[in-house]
């Protein structure tokens, strides 16, 4: 039937996806370590009725062609890995990465996941774990009689045990970076795993070779800007309305066609 009916339908579905992505960002505005997503679209494809450059006579050719577009499709939902804001917590096991890098977490099935969420705790045996109980790698165990824990900007973990006057170094935290962090697969629970698109993890000490440094006592909040998301909601809704107007216009034109014959 009329092309515009189906073209406008693709437009409405694309705006639905945009609102879905925006509402996910808004719901995670206070999630520690959350990285916002952005939906990207591209035009679908074109039906060519006449190619540009077709000759119109022996000596002339048409300068433009006739190509009708058929709508829009989503091409990507990218994660934007910009730095989030820091919040001071004064919790000795909270860490934030200033710059590039991910903490390594060991999942129950043995795989390694990566996260920017640095809010760690101790489990019953003194291991450093995240809120789900997954261990931080390389494993760090805090002995029972430690009274203070200090984590340097380069990831060295030192503790002060009862009866000592000097801190002892007990471990070193390593962080991982990727060539293409946007290619990481989101598992949920603030965790990512690497894929062929993200590249293999590159491990190093925080602070060296362009890796970010660690800050103890801070957590990195989400990088969602509510102003941007509100604007995206407004434009998404108005684009949805505009597309629905295109559909109702096509409907009315079809009605006019049908009324041509008495």
């Amino acid at each position: 039937m009329i092309r515009s009916l189906y073209t406008a339908a693709t437009g409405m579905k694309a705006q639905q996806l945009q609102i879905d992505v925006t509402s996910n960002n808004i719901s995670n505005v206070n999630t520690i370590g959350y990285k916002k997503q952005r939906a990207e679209f591209a035009d679908l494809f074109y039906q060519t009725m006449e190619y540009a450059g077709t000759s119109t006579s022996i000596t002339t050719m048409s300068p433009t062609g006739i190509e009708v577009g058929l709508g829009v499709r989503p091409t990507a939902i990218t994660k934007i890995f910009s730095q989030g804001n820091f919040k001071e917590t004064s919790n000795s096991l909270d860490m934030a990465i200033t710059g590039k890098g991910f903490f390594q977490i060991e999942l129950p099935n043995g795989d390694i996941a990566y996260t920017r969420n640095g809010a760690f705790k101790l489990d019953g045996e003194g291991n450093v774990v995240n809120s789900d109980g997954y261990r931080l790698l390389p494993e760090i165990t805090i002995p029972e009689d430690a009274t203070e824990i200090a984590i340097g900007t380069d990831g060295t973990v030192s503790i002060l045990q009862a009866g000592d006057t000097q801190m002892n170094e007990i471990g070193q935290i390593e962080i991982a970076t990727f060539i293409n962090p946007a290619g990481l697969h989101s598992l949920g629970d603030n965790n990512f795993i690497n894929t062929t698109a993200s590249g293999d993890p590159i491990l190093d000490i925080p602070g060296l070779n362009g890796f970010g440094q660690l800050r103890q006592g801070f957590v990195e909040m989400s990088n969602v800007q509510l102003v941007e998301e509100m604007t995206d909601l407004i434009t998404g809704q108005r684009a949805y309305e505009a597309n629905s107007k295109a559909i109702t216009t096509s409907d009315e034109m079809l009605q006019t066609v049908n009324q041509l014959k008495r």
């Binding site: 009916l5 189906y6 339908a9 409405m12 579905k13 639905q16 559909i247 096509s250 409907d251 079809l254």
Partner: peptide, 10 residues
Amino acid sequence: NPVSEMVGLI
């Protein structure tokens, strides 16, 4: 997807 069904109805 209600959009697809509405276009089908039209």
